[in-house]
Nucleic acid binder design. Structure first.
Length: 270
DNA sequence: TTAAGTGTTGCTCT
DNA sequence: AAGAGCAACACTTA
């Protein structure tokens, strides 16, 4: 479920096991996911180069190789990154593999093949071309930047939170969580929020994303723990509000399902 | 067996 | 012109 917190963990994984190491080989198992370069050309360019750095902007992970460009990885609906030990068997759905000279591999998985891996010259150029807004967790995205991002937006606040050109990193699930923690009705128009609501929303945005990163980083693989009081585990039909126990309701926005607590997140005036 | 699903894009209709 | 809705993408899981 790669929204910002998940991609942040992929970035840390890459930093822990790959940065500064030399790429012995690069294998593209699924050319359809590769954009802007052919598998053969990428392999030629990246072989014997060092992986210099990993960066993240919103939901995109950047892997930077010494004098061989940067890979921009988008994980789509359910892609992931895994580190594989020397003789560890490859899991299903691996679409691209970096093999290092120390024997371990970094695998990009994507079961449903929605997503892409693109070779670019520079992360900032990619961000500008894609029109991505500021990264939701970057310190530069402060309260002033947040109110500026919301300025003049008449859409539902949830739609604005998920709009990657407005704020980068928030998807369907974390948008619901942030609105729940801020006690805001998801379909309220963004320009109907008063100062107090905006401040609550900004605090919830930073707190939810940072907390999710911290908890996931501390959790064992596959346990995916979240602190008490999060909506996410109850985010389904029949769920109960973790704060007040009311039945969680669902709604649709732009074809996506959303969930909220009608008691904690009441509809304004209605 | 059918439907829903974490993301994005592009088209259509207001 | 902006905004909303929808299908499509490819495939798994409930």
């Amino acid at each position: 479920m790669p929204e910002l917190p998940d991609v942040e963990l992929f970035k840390r994984l890459a930093e822990q096991c790959c940065i500064g190491k030399t790429i012995a080989d690069l294998k593209v198992a699924d050319p359809k996911l590769l954009k802007g370069v052919s598998p053969a050309a990428l392999q030629r360019q990246w072989r014997n180069k060092k992986l210099r750095a990993a960066h993240r902007h919103g939901k995109v992970l950047f892997l930077e190789a010494d004098s061989a460009g940067t890979l921009a990885m988008h994980f789509g609906m359910n892609g992931s990154l895994q580190s594989l030990a020397d003789n560890e068997e490859e899991p299903p759905f691996v679409r691209l593999t970096l093999a290092f000279t120390d024997g371990h591999r970094l695998a990009y998985l994507n079961p449903r093949r929605i997503g892409h891996v693109m070779l670019i010259s520079d992360a900032n150029a990619y961000i500008a071309e894609e029109g991505l807004g500021p990264d939701a967790l970057s310190p530069a995205f402060d309260y002033a930047a947040f109110t500026a991002a919301l300025d003049g937006k008449r859409q539902a606040i949830k739609a604005v939170l998920m709009d990657q050109t407005c704020i980068a990193g928030i998807g369907n699930i974390y948008a619901d969580e942030i609105l729940f923690q801020a006690k805001l009705y998801p379909l309220t128009s963004a320009n109907a929020l008063d100062e107090a609501a905006k401040q609550r929303l900004f605090k919830a945005l930073k707190w939810v994303l940072q907390t999710a990163v911290d908890y996931k980083a501390g959790a064992e693989i596959f346990t995916d723990r979240l602190p008490k009081g999060f909506l996410i585990p109850e985010r389904h039909a029949g769920g109960k509000c973790p704060r007040c126990g009311a039945a969680i309701l669902s709604f649709k926005l732009g074809g996506r399902s959303g969930y909220y607590c009608p008691r904690c997140q009441p509809e304004p005036d209605g």
